[in-house]
Design a protein around this nucleic acid. Structure first.
Length: 484
DNA sequence: ATTTGAGTGGGAGGAGTTAC
DNA sequence: GTAACTCCTCCCACTCAAAT
């Protein structure tokens, strides 16, 4: 029995109802069968009637063209067909067979009704996927496939065109995910590059990209910051990101000799785009209390970790068993966002501190309660997966799942916090730091609490406290919110 | 300058309401 | 009785804040 019925019972008229979207317009369809919601026989007949209607709608849709899930599916199939063909040409029958089988599996899905993007992604994720160490091999493969594709499709790619180089650039960058590049970063880079190529024209030879082109592109970006978001506009911060991503792309094109000369203003400040820093938001004592008291179980633990240890969802998701002192209730860590760099720059004198936090009693109790059996991560979701996950889907789009973020959103709604009073999860972090700063002695440890390294000499307040002092500071912080 | 990841807005469809 | 709305929830794609 599915958790949700396909049709919903419509009490005013005592009939079943289905909402459909046709040509972007929502429409309600009614099915007059059955006497009540629990009349199973009536529901079955209504459902049968709906199925018929649905088939008719699908047929009408089919006449219009494929939907997005279908396009994704087709793409996945075509990709595997090419891989199968390539391996056959290379004489690897075993691999060819593997991809051929996957093609069959996907082809079965094609006729399915109500195909959602989600379902398609799930289906594809079940199939063979390059493991991290094989990603490079897949990249090489896809280059080889392109070679064979030339014969099958009969088309010679223009290796000087913007579109061709953009594809190659992104493919190369993709092979660095997740070792050197996060999925999120790759996705952002692809938005930037496609934005540029769409503007320039994908068939345009990159040789024609000059300093003037970049100037024009900058003006195009600035124009977009004037537009509404719903009309393809974005903020100055994004415009700035786009500009520097494109600089990176152009430089890469030059390095691989797709273009002869670098635009002379590539590093010029003429191309800079300025933006303002956002102001810092904090919670009041009441807000902290409302949220923490209102949260249940795991969510309460997550909120406490945010405040106790200045964590963000990714930090909580990445927390390792070895980082918790299970006897004394302490937690030691360098922030997720920085720990990789820290390893790389071991010799750099601007080290990110490893901070040792004393956990409040409530935090520690909950942490013990929800500790997982996993050898690595302390906290996992109900399905045994990390609380925050992200990867690049086969369609080239990023898939992000954050259980903590989602739960926080639900909590806010459940507590009926008005929209204008809703503050993001990271507010706990800034609240902790701001509260510490209010204290005349502990104020100096705010940055240490955040786990940040000093960025400039101007940050003269940066002090590494002794263990005892910092424990007292954290204790004091907890007391401000009635936490021990 | 470059990278990482949190936040947001909007589409789709469920649930309830209203206009005629 | 019918069809159209408004609100809500979930999820995804994309933006942009913040880290080095």
């Amino acid at each position: 029995m599915p958790r949700k019925l396909e049709l919903t019972w419509f009490q005013p008229r005592k009939c079943w109802r289905k909402r459909v979207t046709i040509d972007g317009k929502k429409k309600d369809l009614y099915f007059k069968y059955g006497k009540s919601k629990s009349d199973l026989e009536g529901y079955k007949r209504a459902l049968a009637d709906w199925k018929q209607k649905e088939a008719a709608i699908e047929a009408a849709k089919a006449a219009l063209g494929p939907s997005i899930p279908e396009v994704i599916l087709e793409k996945a199939i075509k990709y595997r067909q090419r891989l199968a063909e390539y391996h056959r040409l290379e004489g690897d029958e075993e691999k060819a067979q593997l991809f051929q089988n996957e093609v069959k599996i996907l082809q079965k899905k094609i006729g399915k009704r109500n195909l959602t993007q989600n379902e398609v992604a799930k289906e594809i994720s079940k199939l063979s996927k390059p493991k991290d160490n094989e990603r490079w091999a897949w990249f090489i493969d896809s280059q080889m496939v392109a070679k064979y594709q030339k014969w099958t499709v009969g088309e010679t790619p223009n290796d000087k065109s913007a579109g061709y180089n953009a594809e190659n650039f992104l493919l190369l960058k993709k092979s660095e995910v997740p070792e050197n590049l996060s999925p999120g970063r790759w996705a952002a880079l692809s938005y930037s590059v496609y934005f540029f190529v769409d503007w320039l024209g994908k068939d345009k030879p990159l040789d024609l990209v000059t300093g003037k082109t970049l100037n024009d592109f900058r003006i195009h970006l600035l124009n977009c910051t004037e537009k509404k978001k719903s009309e393809g506009g974005f903020g100055r911060k994004t415009a700035y990101e786009r500009m520097k991503d494109i600089r990176q792309f152009i430089r890469w094109c030059w390095q691989i000799e797709a273009i002869e000369n670098l635009p002379r203003n590539l590093d010029s400040s003429d191309l800079s785009i300025s933006f303002e820093d956002a102001e810092i938001v904090t919670f009041s004592k009441d807000e902290v209390k409302t949220l923490i008291d209102g949260a249940k179980d795991q969510m309460q633990l997550h909120l406490l970790l945010c405040l106790n240890c200045a964590m963000l969802p990714k930090d909580i998701s990445d927390l390792k068993q070895s980082q918790v002192d299970w006897k004394n209730g302490r937690l030691e860590r360098a922030r997720s966002k920085t720990s990789k760099k820290r390893r790389v720059n071991e010799k750099s004198n601007r080290k990110v501190p490893v901070v040792d936090y004393k956990l409040w009693r409530q935090t520690f109790d909950l942490l013990k309660k929800f500790r997982s059996d996993d050898s690595e991560r302390v906290l996992l979701n109900a399905n045994g997966l990390p609380l925050k996950r992200s990867e690049i889907g086969e369609d080239g789009k990023i898939d992000v799942t954050s259980n903590i973020g989602k739960n926080y959103e639900r909590l806010r709604n459940r507590l009926e916090i008005p929209k204008e009073d809703q503050k993001p999860l990271k507010t706990f972090r800034s609240t902790g730091a701001s509260k510490l700063e209010e204290h005349k002695e502990y104020g100096r440890y705010a940055q240490y609490y955040l786990g940040q390294s000093p960025r400039s000499i101007a940050e003269k307040h940066y002090v590494i406290p002794s263990k005892n002092q910092f424990d007292r500071a954290i204790k004091w912080l907890g007391q401000q919110y009635g936490l021990k």
